[in-house]
Simulated scan of single mutants.
Amino acid sequence: MIEGENNNIQSQANSKVPDNNEGKKPSAMKIVGYNLLVFAAYTVICAVTSKDGGFVFDMFFIGIQFFACIIFAIINRSWGWILSALMVLIIGFSTCVSMLSISGI
């Protein structure tokens, strides 16, 4: 009977589920979402604050964010950062082209 209780105690100790998510990495879609949120924020700020040269500042910030995403992808070894970099580059290029055509330059 003592042996059975000992096995039960060991099985309960082995089936312990961690209560916190400290060691868990953020999902790739959260990384992409946060990067697109930051991108949208500075794009709106650049478009509102300067009418003629807003796309120049926007291109500057897009380049910084693109290279930062690439560096984080290398450091963290995460495909979410690569996806973020590509999304920022593709959406940022099309946004800059549309800001250029709207401003008439």
Rank of each mutant, 00 (worst) to 15 (best):
M1T: 08
C96M: 08
I64Y: 03
I71V: 07
Q65K: 02
E22M: 06
G33N: 09
C46V: 05
I45A: 13
S15Y: 03
T95G: 02
K24Q: 14
W81K: 04
F67P: 05
G23L: 13
A13F: 15
V44H: 02
S27T: 10
D52N: 12
M1G: 14
V48F: 10
I74L: 07
F60I: 15
T95V: 10
N6V: 12
K16E: 06
F39W: 02
M59L: 14
S50D: 09
V97A: 15
K25S: 06
E22K: 11
F66M: 06
G33M: 07
I45Q: 00
N20S: 14
Q12E: 12
M59F: 15
W81P: 03
F66R: 02
I82R: 03
D19W: 11
V44W: 01
T43G: 03
G80K: 00
C46K: 10
N14M: 14
D58G: 13
T49V: 15
N35S: 07
G33I: 11
Y42R: 00
S11E: 13
G63N: 04
E3P: 03
G23E: 11
Y34G: 08
Q10C: 06
S101E: 08
R77I: 12
K25F: 11
A40V: 01
I71C: 10
A68E: 07
C96V: 11
S101R: 15
Q65G: 07
S11D: 08
G54P: 02
G23R: 04
S78P: 09
S15I: 04
L83Y: 12
M59E: 01
D58Q: 09
V88F: 01
F55M: 00
